[in-house]
Amino acid sequence: MHGRILILNGPPRAGKSMLAHAVQAEIPGRWINWGVDAFNATLPPVLLPGIGLRPGGERPDLEPQVAALYAAYFAALAGFARQGFDVVADLGLHRDYAAPLDPMSILRQSLAGLPLVMVGVDCALDIIMARRNADPGGGFYASGPGIPAPVARWQEAVHAGQEYDLRLDMGSLTPAAAAARLARFLGSAPIDCVSPA
């Protein structure tokens, strides 16, 4: 039996990583937590920010490699699921690149026939900025007063045109409460398998 694939899609600092940890702790299964940060930690500096490339077409030189990295990443997720492991992945999927690139079409092709749940992770910008300002990650996260342009781009691009099975507001939900909602969803509805692109 194939494992389930749970994609948590939202902007940085929306609460996806904490939710992924809560899924492992609260929802029965053998959940492998392997999202953007874990994957990018395996990459050499020349390929960074890898699949975390932010919206706005800021690194067109890197975009062909990003498409290949997404293909490799989703193929690995498929491999885990085909071996019977459940996978939770926190990502920031968007289509706002300099050249046409749709990670969702790569996802559909790579995960065809596997059980997938797409979760949109929402969070208000003021909460995201409070989190960024509290922990700017040594400058990795844009912070400061107001809303920096990259943060606004993430908020717009990450959910544009996306379809979800479930939406969770991680500005108002604790990770445990959000995981409980996910558990109820997983227990109450059959999980559709991905159709080929």
Score class of each variant (00 low, 15 high):
residue 89 A to S: 15
residue 179 A to P: 06
residue 38 A to Y: 07
residue 64 P to R: 02
residue 77 L to T: 04
residue 122 D to W: 11
residue 169 D to V: 03
residue 157 A to F: 01
residue 11 P to Q: 14
residue 108 R to S: 12
residue 184 R to E: 15
residue 171 G to Q: 06
residue 60 P to C: 06
residue 141 Y to W: 14
residue 152 A to T: 02
residue 9 N to W: 02
residue 150 P to S: 05
residue 108 R to E: 12
residue 39 F to S: 08
residue 155 Q to C: 09
residue 14 A to R: 01
residue 153 R to C: 08
residue 3 G to H: 05
residue 164 Y to L: 04
residue 63 E to T: 12
residue 187 G to D: 14
residue 8 L to R: 05
residue 75 A to H: 08
residue 101 L to S: 08
residue 168 L to K: 04
residue 92 G to H: 15
residue 161 G to Y: 04
residue 98 A to H: 13
residue 133 N to S: 11
residue 92 G to W: 15
residue 26 E to I: 04
residue 27 I to W: 01
residue 76 A to T: 15
residue 45 P to D: 12
residue 42 T to Q: 11
residue 86 D to I: 10
residue 25 A to H: 14
residue 76 A to Q: 15
residue 113 G to P: 05
residue 142 A to F: 14
residue 107 L to P: 02
residue 154 W to L: 00
residue 11 P to W: 07
residue 24 Q to F: 05
residue 109 Q to F: 11
residue 109 Q to Y: 13
residue 133 N to C: 09
residue 190 P to H: 09
residue 51 I to T: 12
residue 85 F to Y: 15
residue 145 P to W: 03
residue 107 L to H: 01
residue 73 Y to W: 07
residue 73 Y to P: 07
residue 172 S to G: 07
residue 174 T to Q: 07
residue 80 F to Y: 13
residue 137 G to C: 02
residue 190 P to C: 06
residue 60 P to V: 04
residue 26 E to C: 11
residue 6 L to C: 04
residue 103 P to C: 09
residue 152 A to Y: 12
residue 108 R to D: 15
residue 119 V to H: 00
residue 131 R to F: 01
residue 34 W to V: 13
residue 76 A to E: 10
residue 157 A to I: 03
residue 89 A to G: 10
residue 145 P to D: 15
residue 59 R to M: 15
residue 141 Y to N: 10
residue 70 Y to V: 10
residue 69 L to E: 02
